[in-house]
């Protein structure tokens, strides 16, 4: 369904997207907004190594815990460029493993995350947006960075993990 863009084309589109969203983001959250203090990342997240680029296989998810030892998260190489993706193909993303609807575990199922409790589905290539189902909040996306050795680090959570008033 989704044709791959060339890397150059992708970067061009990503730059355009970023420019558009930065102005959109401002419109959505007014300059003097009272919501600012809670805007992610607002908390002191630790940087945690979650894998290496060389160890990942397309569509083979790796689970880890973040932002603390009891909280499931999923790292996955999608094989196609993704919003917020890292690595040479911009296709490595990570998300909270907890459904934002009522806290059930989500499963990666070829291209998509599915929650088996009420069948919410999230698109990992599109910032974890709910494209079907009940979850009115997108899946929290975990900010990733990659160092020269190809080690991948989780550094923050964008979005509230279900069942909490603050992520940490």
């Amino acid at each position: 369904m989704q044709r791959m863009l060339s890397r150059r084309g992708f970067l061009k589109v990503m730059a355009m997207t970023a420019a558009l969203f930065s102005s959109w983001g401002k419109a959505a959250l007014a300059a003097g907004s009272k919501l600012k203090p809670w805007l992610a990342p607002s908390l002191p997240y630790k940087s945690v190594k979650v894998g290496n680029v060389a160890d990942l296989t397309v569509n083979k998810p790796v689970t880890f815990n973040y932002p603390d030892a009891n909280t499931p998260a999923v790292l996955v190489k999608l094989g196609k460029p993704a919003l917020g993706g890292v690595g040479p193909q911009n296709d490595i993303v990570a998300f909270s493993g907890v459904c934002t609807h009522m806290g059930c575990p989500i499963q990666y199922q070829g291209e998509r995350f599915v929650c088996r409790c009420h069948y919410s589905m999230f698109d990992p290539a599109k910032a974890g947006q709910t494209y079907q189902g009940l979850a009115s909040t997108w899946l929290p996306q975990i900010t990733l960075t990659v160092d020269k050795k190809g080690d991948i680090y989780a550094t923050a959570v964008n979005g509230l993990i279900w069942g909490r008033a603050k992520n940490i």
Binding site: A28, W38, W138, Q141, A156, V157, N158, A165
Partner: peptide, 13 residues
Amino acid sequence: MSILPRFDQVPLP
């Protein structure tokens, strides 16, 4: 980063 404003804490009533 996020393409939308996302929050990682919310005020409790």
